[in-house]
Design a binder for these strands. Structure first.
Length: 214
DNA sequence: GAAACGATTTACT
DNA sequence: GTAAATCGTTTCA
């Protein structure tokens, strides 16, 4: 298992769309309730701060929920969606741009038994960690992790190389990715965002089974 | 204080 | 494809 935790400076890059694509293939790790889980990031979406109609911080909206988005990049933004699902985001950039990246799907590597228990499942299939609500639940992430420091020891991201063996029967993920293995599309579930709803700011690893929607 | 609204998931027709 | 579940956040009065 790689221990190359990404530093705070990584998250402070000023192009959230670039970072959303760059995160594909990296490893995300959580240590919650003394249980470690890790997985390869397979699907993300970029939300570009105050200028993006799909972003919760559009036009500088500043509330108890969104205030963390204005922090310096490298913290978590977790919120409850539809009263049911905790959605996990990474805040990026500096200068209070309120940029965020939503983690939409991952491919399990370590702690699969823990993920199964948290999801109430007995067998692994793509629904274990595909879809932002399912990913967060499998990783034990909820609003108690609002504002979590991604350079801390609860939830973080590690760069490749990945030394653990991915799921042998379900994973098809190589350790290095070429651009044609990453598909770009419009974001999911934001049709209210008017002229910004079709921006190509969703990325997924098209060689993985662990993707929410094709 | 009241009401509408989701960056979703799952089950059912 | 359609619909229900479910509740904190936001907006409006």
């Amino acid at each position: 298992m790689s221990t190359t935790k990404l530093p705070a400076s990584y998250y402070q890059h000023d192009d959230v769309v670039f970072l959303a694509k760059d995160l594909i293939g990296k490893t995300i790790v959580s240590m919650v309730d003394d249980q470690r889980t890790s997985a390869i990031i397979t699907e993300t979406e970029a939300y570009r701060g105050v200028g993006d109609k799909a972003c919760h911080a559009h036009l500088g909206r500043f509330t108890d929920r969104t205030k963390i988005m204005y922090e310096t990049g490298g913290v978590a933004y977790v919120y409850l969606c539809y009263g049911i699902h905790n959605l996990f985001n990474i805040i990026t950039n500096t200068n209070e741009q309120a940029d965020a990246i939503l983690i939409r799907a991952v491919e399990p590597v370590d702690g699969i038994d823990v993920m199964l228990a948290r999801r109430g499942k007995s067998t692994v299939d793509k629904t274990l960690t595909s879809g932002p609500g399912n990913f967060s639940k499998a990783f034990g992430l909820d609003r108690s992790h609002y504002g979590a420091d991604l350079t801390g020891d609860t939830v973080w991201i590690a760069s490749t190389p990945i030394t653990s063996t991915p799921l042998s029967d379900l994973a098809s993920t190589p350790l290095n990715y070429r651009s044609e293995q990453i598909t770009t599309s419009k974001r999911i579930g934001i049709d209210y965002a008017e002229e910004d709803k079709d921006l190509p700011w969703r990325f997924y690893l098209n060689t993985s089974k662990f993707v929410s929607k094709r």
